[in-house]
């Protein structure tokens, strides 16, 4: 019991240190890139005020003062970091509201979308993958594998528009946007789940085929065990590693998918917020989004590793 607690504490401490490092590096990179990119939030704010793009240097300079954008880039980064470690992520240049307040409104939207997608995509991906590996009829296995490949390859925006035009506009079956109630979740869910299911089913199919060809499976078959029991008892734990490793990719895919899906289907989540922030060169908001993405990515990957360690003792050393 004590040993477990120590291990757990050590693991948490290492995770925290790793997170701090990742967040530090990503925030520095994002800050630097945005600072290097031409165009800045002060110009955009001055244009927003005037209602048109023609603004003078004076107006931009005044907006720059207001946004606290004076000083060199390193100076500004240090200032930002100083506030950020105290939990103050600054104000959005675009909306004038604290970034943390805005994130608090938006993160749950994306999380619910991503959570629902995971609930649908994980079992479906496993099932399709298992079928693609085990169905007795070869053309069916081939067909499922091809479908998986297709699902991964289709561009998100294209699928989104196709669904809107066919299901919402022509057939009138579903609302185009989030404000259409729960039914408004169906299309974004499908769009986000497709690549996840596709990827997962491919990984499961391939690793399951490999596992089924292993000598211990042959041995089990020779003992007269049924296919299903072999898969569940012997092959699946071996597949788990590969599946957990893809979760990182899937989370990354969902984050980029959210950028498109939230804009097209009018879900005001963090993806949509990020797109607007980049267009406005809204540095504070961009930084906050980048931190969220890095956090989500690192945390899910580490959790997946941890789980993998629990399932397969060979990887738990690290």
């Amino acid at each position: 019991m004590n040993g477990l607690l120590v291990r757990w504490t050590r693991w948490s401490a290492r995770l925290a240190a790793e997170l701090a490092l990742v967040l530090g590096i990503t925030s520095l990179l994002a800050f630097g890139l945005i600072a290097l990119a031409p165009g800045d939030a002060a110009t955009r704010l001055a244009q927003q005020r005037a209602g048109h793009p023609g603004v003078t240097e004076d107006q931009v300079a005044s907006a720059r003062r207001e946004l606290g954008m004076e000083g060199s880039v390193p100076e500004r980064y240090v200032r930002w970091l100083g506030h950020a470690v105290q939990g103050d992520l600054g104000k959005s240049a675009r909306t004038g509201r604290p970034v943390l307040t805005e994130l608090a409104e938006r993160v749950p939207v994306t999380l619910s979308l991503a959570g629902l997608t995971a609930v649908v995509a994980l079992p479906l991906g496993l099932l399709v993958g298992a079928l693609a590996a085990m169905l007795p009829w070869r053309p069916a296995r081939r067909g499922l594998r091809l479908t998986g490949l297709l699902a991964v390859s289709l561009p998100t925006f294209w699928v989104s528009y196709l669904l809107v035009v066919v299901l919402a506009e022509q057939l009138g079956l579903l609302p185009t946007s989030a404000d259409g109630g729960p039914a408004g979740y169906v299309m974004p869910l499908v769009v986000l789940a497709l690549p996840a299911v596709g990827l997962l089913s491919r990984v499961v199919a391939v690793s399951l085929r490999e596992a089924l060809a292993q000598p211990y499976v042959r041995a089990a078959q020779a003992r007269g065990a049924t296919t299903v029991s072999i898969v569940v008892r012997d092959a699946l734990p071996n597949v788990a590693g590969a599946v957990l490793n893809t979760i990182g990719l899937i989370v990354g895919g969902m984050l980029t998918g959210a950028l498109v899906v939230e804009t097209v289907f009018a879900h005001n989540g963090i993806g949509d917020y990020f797109v607007q922030a980049v267009n406005f060169r809204d540095l504070m908001a961009i930084q906050a989004c980048v931190l969220c993405f890095a956090l989500a990515f690192t945390a899910t990957n580490r959790l997946a590793d941890r789980l993998h360690g629990r399932i397969d003792p060979r990887v738990s050393g690290g």
Binding site: V164, A168, P175, S177, F265, A266
Partner: peptide
């Protein structure tokens, strides 16, 4: 595109 679809769908 979504706005145009919403108008045509009567939303």
């Amino acid at each position: 595109q979504t706005r145009v679809s919403a108008l045509r769908a009567g939303e």
